[in-house]
Nucleic acid binder design. Sequence first.
DNA 1: GCCAACGTTGGC
DNA 2: GCCAACGTTGGC
Length: 154
Amino acid sequence: MVQHWLVKSEPHVYPWEQLVKDGQTHWDGVRNYQARNTMRDDMKLDDIVLFYHSNTKPPHVAGIAKVCREGYPDHTAQDPSSHYFDAKASPENPRWIMVDIAPHRALLSMVTLPQMKANSALDGMPLLAKGSRLSVQPVSEEHYAEVCRMGGLA
DNA sequence: GCCAACGTTGGC
DNA sequence: GCCAACGTTGGC
């Protein structure tokens, strides 16, 4: 069964438009254990991923991606010149994991955080939970379908 | 294993 | 820029 996820990116760091240009990308730099475990254990090839822009006005879902490579070591953790370098990572113990994602579907319009908060059909969505900071999180099939309905599939 | 200090996230 | 929420670190 295909599963659904949501990943956050700050648009000034890596926007949806860049993913469309690139065709696919390494989802590197995740340094949170819960998010890592999700990528390592749960995200499967062809799973669907809502691409969310955080730290922008308004925050919003910008597009729909899919997993095109399952979890493997995040090499930036072992690169001293990387912003994401982690001295505790090594080839034997890479410590951090990433997946690859690619664009899947475009939305006719962005789905903003205020719109989602106002939609009771999305009650219980982890993104909307108070204090939610997870950068990789699950989305139920029903919530996914509702976000698609709100944005309109291109 | 507790918990205070600190750093980060991310909406507002 | 503020600050609440949360995660991690490290002394004890």
